[in-house]
Structure formats: structure tokens, C-alpha cells
Design a protein around this nucleic acid. Sequence first.
DNA 1: TTGTATGCGTTATCAC
DNA 2: GTGATAACGCATACAA
Lengths: 339, 339
Amino acid sequence: MERSGGQATINDVARLAGVSKKTVSRVINRSALLGEETRRRVEQVIAELGYVPNPQARALALRRNFLIALVHDNPNAQTVMNVQQGLLEGVAGSEFELVVRPVRRGSPTMLDDLRAFIERQRPFGVLLMPPVGDLPPVVDLCRALGCRHVRMSAVAGDPASTVASNDREAVRHAVSYLVEQGHRRIGHVAGPDGFLSAAERRAGFEEAVAAAELALPRSWIAQGSYTFESGQEAGERLLDLSPRPTAIFCANDEMAAGLVHAARARGLDVPRDLSVIGFDDTPIAAHLWPPLTTVRWPSISMARTAALKLIGGEQEVEEPSRFLSTLIRRASVAPPPAD
Amino acid sequence: MERSGGQATINDVARLAGVSKKTVSRVINRSALLGEETRRRVEQVIAELGYVPNPQARALALRRNFLIALVHDNPNAQTVMNVQQGLLEGVAGSEFELVVRPVRRGSPTMLDDLRAFIERQRPFGVLLMPPVGDLPPVVDLCRALGCRHVRMSAVAGDPASTVASNDREAVRHAVSYLVEQGHRRIGHVAGPDGFLSAAERRAGFEEAVAAAELALPRSWIAQGSYTFESGQEAGERLLDLSPRPTAIFCANDEMAAGLVHAARARGLDVPRDLSVIGFDDTPIAAHLWPPLTTVRWPSISMARTAALKLIGGEQEVEEPSRFLSTLIRRASVAPPPAD
DNA sequence: TTGTATGCGTTATCAC
DNA sequence: GTGATAACGCATACAA
């Protein structure tokens, strides 16, 4: 039932309904002051024509568009997908669409690329995934450009523009759990510099170790880059030590998987000879052998809330801005071997 | 150097450069007929003002927008990310943006949702990821709506609207490799109904087995749903058989991972007691223990080509529309155990 | 309650 | 080569 020339417009509706464009506009926008009879007639015509308002035109007239952008540096596919899902849940039922914009942290042109994107596209708002959102220049850029933004981060910040997880505390709990199991020599595979999450997780680790009054030789902390391979290498360094740690907390699951490989390669059994805890609860954690004890952070609901903060008015900032992670206990942790 | 009232517009440029809007428009669109001197002057003002054309207004005037949509049903996070990356590579340097639109295959409202999305947003084109693109009603919908579309699929189709991998052939090679290793009892964990990829992979499996003149009892094929758990269950059924297969080809890596778990749970060693091959070469394949032999299909370049088909004119359909998968040999395959 | 005139930022038409 | 002027589809201000 469409017009031959393509999509029906507000003019077609107005003409066929015998009213003015403005009246149609009122129907669309659910204006209160409208004759019941008129509204019904217009709605009838809209239905007949299959009329749908043109978002481009709306955007132009309203001087704002209905795009929210996900800016990320793809540390992990599943996490990005979770965030996309959360954002879409947050904007579901609204007229907003999600556009994705990967950037390369470290690229010298990243800031220029981002600026060009924002200036061109003028998204209504952007979500800055870690670690991009932890980069002050990026946040400054958004501010300078007058672009609404919400950061996902491992540390709390301005509630209006931040949704944060409690990585440090969650790691403290995880490491305390190792202590409860009887471990006294606990190592750590840390994440890369530049990641706030890595710093927080390391801080949580050190706090828990200190609280338990355990020794922590410098060599028990090995740095990785959040990749499987770096976890493998860090694991080799850690497992070469003598005495070696009986438990290792890894700053993410990928590195934990690498560590488990390294352990297996030298004939160590997890968890009999070595307990391992990861972070993120990506699918790899549950599918590893043995299934990996790990920390799950609520990426989906964080993203959902971020979307609401982005598109909601000021009032909706009532949403929580701090999200709690939980320890998922699987089979990769056991008491330490008897010496 | 921006106007106080916000973003500079074409009017500001025209005024400051002392030319008409149309002339500025000509500069932006690199019109050939333009005075060298005029062009320079306008470009100077554009640079000073930091002027950027408004895509919304462009879209309205041109009666077309610059959005391409990725429609998917998220079978696997890494694959979706690969496709996003490929699409973005394909549109890099252009003014196109990527919007993501997950749908739920199986939901009774899927078609309506998709229709509403296309009618509202009027994307310039959509990429249909498998299995969505393999659903005839979806393709018909796009056609009926006059929406450009390209399907990613496991079988060839109209080159203008299809990029295809050669799953069947790739699986034949993979299974032949098992035969070469000496296996005579080869099982299969098949993918779910409704997935063309699952059907193709199964067909490739059966063809290879037939070509080697091997027996193939019905019970050596177990169906899964592309998930880890379903692979585990299928594995249990297959490994209960007596005699049991000495090698199993799984229609994707997730199920292969589940199968390996099932094997390990009953004390079988991979690859000593059981050889396993997966499909997709997702990260889990390389990180499994043992590292999984699998088939890699070029999702990124397929998506890149799809993007070019989408945004390119008719001439650019010269791009290949059939992509070759390759067998990645890792440690999960070995000769069968001596009986 | 409804209509008219005007603007949003860009491109297209067709003069000059 | 360049510039008025009218679209594009919708929303707002202000009348009526």
C-alpha cells in the first residue's frame, strides 16, 4: 500500500487525511491536544500507507540524531558482544540505533580519527569501552566536542558519565578465597600498562596478599598483555621459580588459559599442583580443562545502564553507576599440594 | 575556530568565502568545473572553520543515507567481530557507518522487527550473516522493501548479493586428511537443522567418507546445536559406541571443544585415543588442549568484499564471491590407536 | 484544536 | 564557472 514513488511522506498522509502536516506531526509525536476524531483518521491513513517517519529528516529538524556509538579497542570479542547486547537492550523500544567504531589505542592517529568521526557523524552519544574510556585525552576530546559520553571503567567516576565495576574489591575476594584454601605462595599474572583494569586488579591482588600477611617477592608478579600467548610466557617465568607459587591469579581469562597451557606443558596438573583464577568469565573459562574459577563482571547490565544514561534525560541518572562482580567457583582451585 | 552557535555550516563557509552555497557544495563534492582560485579560497575557509558537512542533511537531500547494517543472530562472538571488522575495512575511507542489528532467528516477530528496522532506518544496504541470510523469507523481505543486501553463506548464489565460502569442499579435505592418517571409523557431530553451513559440512563429511569407501553407520553421526554443551552430549553418545570412532569431525569448534571435554571425562586422550577436527578456527581452537585442528574460513575478507558489493556500484561486482577455507593442522589429529 | 510560515543543512535545477 | 531558488521530510513558533 505504498506510494508508487517510493516511501510515503508526511505530506502524503496529510493530503489523504485532509489535514495539515503539522497535525500529522502531532499524531506522530503523541501531542495531547488533538481531536479524538482527527487522530483516528490520521492514524488510519498512516496505517494504510505504511507511513514511517524519516529519521534523517527528523534528525535534521531536531538538530540531533539518534545514533549512539560504541567506541572500543576490541580487547576481547565476547566482551564487545556483551556490551553491544547491553547497549541494544538499553535503547530497545527507542528510535536509537547503535553504530560501532573500533579504534586502535596506540595508533598515533587515534585521536584524530575519533575527532573526525564525532565531528562528521555527530552521534547523540558515545560509549567508551575500556581501555579507551580510561584515556584522558579521549574524554577531553568528547568534552571539547560537546559530545555526550559514558565511560565503562574499573574505577568509579562522575556518575553521570561513568559506569564502573569493582575490580579491585572483586580481586581481593578472589585472592582471599585462595588464602582460605590454604595457599601461602600466590603469584599474579598482571595485565598490561595503560589498562586501569590491570592496575586495579593488581592492586586488589596486592591488598589481599598484604591483608593475609603473605610474602610477595617481586618475582611472583609477571606482566602480560591480556593475550593467551603472554599468559603462557608469564606462566613459564612463574613456574620456573623455586619454590614456585601454588596458586596464581591472572588478570584475565585469556592469560589464565595460557598459564594453564604452560603448566600442562611441564607436566603440572591443575588444580592438583597449581590453582588458577582468571577474570572476565569469557566462554573460554567454562570450556577450559579444568573449568576455570574466575571473576564475572556484569558487562551486559553495565552497558545497558550506560545506554540509559546516554539517552535518558538528567533524571535517569538514578541508575546505579557501580556494578558488582562475583567469583565463579569452578574446578581450577584446590588446596595446595602437601610440600 | 568554530562558530559560537555550535558547528559551522555550509552557509558560514559561503559567507566568509564570499561565494554561494552551491559553490561550497561543489568544492566538497570535488566538482570538476570550478575555478582554481575559488576552490583554494573555499578550502581555506573550510579549514579555518573546521567545517564538516552534516551527514543528516546530505542524506536528506540525496534521498539516501550512508548506513550499512549488519544483521546477525550471533552464533559466535568472534565470528561476529570478524565480520564487523571486515565490513569496516570495506567501508574505510568512505562516509559509511556500520550499525549493528541482532535478530533472533526463531522469534515469531523476527520478520516484523526486521521490516520495521529497514523501513525506519532505510539503511543503504544490509549484510545478512548466516544463518539469517539463509532464510528465504528474510531475503524476500529485503527484496520487497527494495533494500540492497548481501548474504554470507556456505553455498554460492547470485554473485551480486552473495559471498560464499566452500564449506563442503573444505570439509571433504579435512575428512580426507583423517583418512590419510589411517582412520577407518570416522564420526561426525553435525550442526543444527536450519543452518545451511551445517548441512553443507555434513554433506562434505558424507562425501569424503563415501569416497574412501568407509562404513558410516547412522549412529556415527550425532547432531548438536553448535554449542559447547551440545558437543559434549553428542560426544558422549558417540564415545559410548562399540567399537567407537577413532576420529570425529565436528561442525564447529565449540562442539569440538565439548567433545574433547567429554573424551577427557572418560579418560580418553586426544589425539592418542581419538582424533578431532573442528571448524571455524575461533580462538578456542588454538587455546584448547591439545590445540585443535580445524578449518578456517575467511570471514574477514568475505565481509570486506560484501561491504564493497554493498556500497560499490555495479562495476565493483568483479570482486570474488567465493572464498576458500583452509585446513589448519594442529595437535588434535594423530593416526588411530592400534586395535 | 488546527493551520501557516519558516527553518534545519545540504544538493539539484537552471538560469546567468 | 557561478549563483539564486527550490526541493528533501519533518518540527517549531505563532496565529487563527
